[in-house]
């Protein structure tokens, strides 16, 4: 292990990690919004929109992010839709993640027995009151583990960002390997930085899941 090399190029990785994290989080926030919207459309069975959402979910879940990015970055400009690498990465992550988030939210909503809302109606609650006080709190608790799994999944997926020439961690590692042949050091830093990003998120997911299971409601 060449420590001099590591300390020299550490700042480069640090910069790349921030980029990964920044674009990743932005993509996750957008994916969450897309997911909420799609889950609501499917839960309330809104005509026409429901069909569109279904098609979107199938397409998004059955194609790889890398291909989605290539299409957005290299294909779309030919019909006049141009994006810079950063927005392309975020858009791709939102397109991919939206469908995964939608499924996480939908399974949460559907896990609440319809008789719970009927009970709320029988107590005189309106639809929105039943949703706010009875359905959403229960659905959210069920969705959390799947949501956290999706967050980790999407953060990992950012590793293909270098394909649209974003200078992320993979890009940096590949660059250094190609330039200096310091493979071990470059790979060690790559693994290290991904662990720094992903381990806390994974630990948070575990804590939340355990909390919800024990402090949770059970039947």
């Amino acid at each position: 292990m060449n420590w001099e090399f590591i300390s020299k190029y550490l700042p480069l990785y640090e910069k790349a990690a921030w980029l990964t994290l920044k674009l990743g989080l932005l993509g996750i926030v957008l994916a969450t919004l897309v997911g909420l919207l799609c889950a609501a459309v499917r839960y309330y069975r809104i005509p026409v929109l429901e069909g569109i959402v279904r098609i979107y979910i199938e397409i998004s879940r059955n194609t790889p992010l890398l291909i989605q990015l290539f299409f957005i970055y290299y294909g779309l400009p030919k019909i006049g839709i141009r994006t810079d690498p950063a927005s392309c990465g975020v858009a791709g992550l939102a397109f991919l993640g939206g469908s995964y988030m939608a499924e996480a939210f939908r399974s949460g909503l559907e896990s609440v027995d319809p008789i719970q809302s009927e009970t709320a109606y029988a107590l005189g609650m309106s639809r929105s009151q039943a949703l706010r006080f009875i359905i959403l709190p229960q659905a959210a608790a069920v969705s959390v583990p799947a949501y956290m799994a999706n967050v980790i999944f999407l953060l990992k997926e950012t590793s293909v960002f270098s394909a649209v020439s974003l200078m992320d961690l993979m890009f940096t590692a590949k660059d250094l390997i190609g330039l200096y042949y310091k493979t071990t050091e470059s790979l060690a830093m790559l693994v290290g930085f991904y662990l720094i990003i992903l381990l806390p998120v994974s630990a948070l997911g575990n804590v939340l899941e355990r909390r919800l299971r024990y402090a949770g409601f059970g039947a």
Binding site: I152, K156, E157, S159, M170, A173, K174, I177, L190, L199
Partner: peptide
Amino acid sequence: IMPQMVLLFI
């Protein structure tokens, strides 16, 4: 926990 890209590089 590792992205598959990282595994591929390794």
